[in-house]
Amino acid sequence: MATKVITAKQQMRAAQSFPFFSSLAVIVPVLIPFWIAASIFAYCSIAHHPCNRVCQYLVPAGYRFYGLLGTWVVLLNFSSNLAGWVGGALNLALIIWGISVLIIVPLGIRDILRAKKEPWQDLTVETE
């Protein structure tokens, strides 16, 4: 059987990718529909990574991002009522966006920095 080496840098980048792109998508809301589609593929590919530590960074970032989107669905279903409470649809959108940034970005930056400090080692995997 052939072997493949997954370098320490590749593992670190895999661990950092989901929090990075989730943070970027929340900061630039136009990217959210694209990242929703791409995140499914990113999550699936990283979830089956041979290094368990990579998955330990992925799961909380995925829970945060997908939990936030689920909350958006609920909030947007009641947006007509909520907009009246906060003074209009624009105010509601800005409040939802601000809270989203506060949830995703600081924790994403924390995960990115933690992954950078992690002592990654090259991993040899047998391939078929």
Rank of each mutant, 00 (worst) to 15 (best):
M1R: 13
T3I: 10
T3H: 11
T3D: 11
K4C: 02
I6A: 05
I6E: 03
I6T: 12
T7A: 00
K9M: 09
K9P: 05
Q11I: 02
Q11L: 03
M12R: 12
A14S: 14
A15Y: 00
A15S: 05
P19V: 08
P19C: 11
P19Q: 10
F20Q: 11
F20P: 02
L24H: 01
L24T: 07
V26T: 14
V26E: 09
V26F: 06
V28I: 14
V28H: 02
P29G: 06
P29V: 10
L31A: 13
P33Y: 04
F34P: 02
W35R: 06
I36H: 01
S39V: 09
I40T: 09
I40F: 12
F41I: 15
Y43P: 04
C44G: 11
C44F: 12
S45E: 04
I46S: 06
A47Q: 12
A47C: 09
H48P: 02
H48A: 12
P50A: 13
C51G: 01
C51D: 15
N52G: 15
R53A: 14
R53T: 14
R53P: 05
C55S: 13
Q56L: 13
Y57D: 01
L58N: 00
V59S: 12
P60L: 02
G62K: 02
Y63E: 12
Y63W: 14
Y63A: 15
F65G: 12
Y66K: 11
Y66G: 12
G67Q: 10
G67L: 09
L69H: 14
L69Q: 15
L69W: 14
L69I: 15
G70F: 13
G70K: 05
T71Y: 08
W72A: 13
V73D: 01
L75W: 10
L75A: 15
L75S: 10
L75E: 07
L76N: 15
N77T: 14
F78G: 07
F78Y: 15
F78D: 10
F78P: 00
S79Q: 15
S79M: 09
S80E: 15
W85M: 13
V86L: 08
G87I: 04
A89E: 14
L90Q: 12
A93Q: 11
L94A: 08
I95P: 01
I96F: 12
I96Y: 10
I96G: 02
I96N: 06
I96V: 14
I96M: 14
I96T: 09
G98T: 01
S100L: 00
S100E: 03
V101W: 08
I103D: 07
V105C: 02
V105N: 03
V105F: 05
L107M: 11
L107K: 06
I109R: 05
D111H: 01
I112F: 08
I112V: 13
R114W: 04
R114L: 07
R114S: 07
K117R: 09
K117G: 06
E118G: 03
E118N: 06
P119A: 06
P119H: 07
P119V: 06
W120P: 01
W120Q: 00
W120A: 01
W120Y: 06
D122Q: 07
L123E: 04
T124V: 12
E126D: 07
E126Q: 11
T127P: 04
T127L: 06
E128M: 07
E128N: 11
E128F: 06
